[in-house]
């Protein structure tokens, strides 16, 4: 399914979300729009990604601002309940009851998602465990599973009940390359017909999965648009040099022994094809902190 970000209606609208912890502004007036499909949330450590996801997942209320998701306003008890009924949330550090088996744990979450009919619930639990490729170990206690397997159990718990809005906080952390590919496939499938917000440090996750991307830094949105638009911002601003370029915003040695630099290139520089990562690094720079429509 192809999603046109220009014509797709918004399923989530956030305006001026703010939240502080003590003297720290974790979110500083975040406004954004989400549509169906997978939106990537990029940002450095401490950018406010996890806090934003926790607010949008109704785990913590914002100090200021508002948002509606799938038509529900979580500032009322009824609105929050209605949104939670359509929500799947994979936290950054998912917790488990270690003595539960994978099946029992996802079944418990399914009950908490109000799936009361035992037969239908068990079918749903088997479906999501199968989707994350854990059918073979569903009878194993969680304390006996590897970190990657437990991460998949948490994803299964988020997927149970077929939620319309999925919030995934760094789901590929700690996974080996094969598991990461499998996860990408799962998330791409989940994005068909659903609104998925995916926080990650991996620009390649965004490049492969997302039809839109939001860059967050210092609790503020630095960029909102398509991955192609983010990449295009770096066009003409990436160059190669034999030595580290002193005026570059960032530069690093490549495997070829040359330096890849981003910023304002000197005259006659050997320009390179930009990547999403180049665009992301430029978006983090203060001068480029404008938001594209």
């Amino acid at each position: 399914m192809t999603i046109d970000p220009l014509t797709e209606p918004s399923t989530l609208r956030a305006d001026g979300l703010a939240l502080r912890f003590g003297g720290t502004r974790a979110l500083d007036g975040v406004s954004l729009r989400l549509t169906r499909g997978v939106t990537g949330l990029l940002g450095p450590n401490g950018a406010g990604k996890t806090t934003l996801l926790r607010v949008l997942a109704t785990a913590v209320p914002a100090d200021d601002g508002r948002f509606t998701a799938l038509g529900h306003d979580p500032r009322t008890a009824a609105g929050r309940l209605a949104l939670r009924r359509e929500l799947g949330y994979l936290p950054q550090t998912p917790g488990f009851h270690p003595d539960f088996t994978a099946f029992e744990f996802v079944d418990y979450v399914a009950i908490l998602k109000e799936l009361t009919d035992r037969g239908a619930r068990h079918r749903e639990v088997r479906r999501v465990l199968d989707a994350v490729d854990l059918s073979d170990v569903r009878g194993k206690r969680l304390k006996r599973l590897s970190g990657g397997m437990r991460q998949r159990v948490a994803l299964a718990a988020a997927l149970v009940g077929d939620p319309g809005f999925l919030v995934l906080d760094e789901p590929t952390v700690g996974l080996d390359p094969e598991q990461r590919m499998r996860f990408r496939d799962l998330i791409a499938q989940a994005g068909e017909g659903r609104t998925v917000l995916l926080s990650t440090h991996q620009t390649e996750d965004v490049a492969m999965l997302c039809h839109r991307v939001v860059v967050l830094a210092g609790g503020r949105v630095r960029f909102e648009g398509t991955p192609a638009e983010l990449t295009a911002r770096a066009a003409g601003r990436v160059w190669s040099s034999a030595e580290r370029a002193p005026g570059a915003l960032a530069g690093w040695r490549t495997g070829m022994g040359t330096f890849r630099n981003i910023g304002a290139p000197p005259a006659g520089a050997d320009l390179l094809e930009p990547t999403l990562e180049d665009g992301y690094l430029l978006a983090l720079d203060g001068e480029s902190a404008e938001v594209t429509a």
């Binding site: 009924r85 917790g95 418990y108 948490a154």
Partner: peptide
């Protein structure tokens, strides 16, 4: 104490 607090924080059954 609820080790699964994060995972079950936003379910309808609060």
């Amino acid at each position: 104490d609820d080790p699964a607090r994060n995972t079950s924080a936003t379910t309808p059954v609060a």
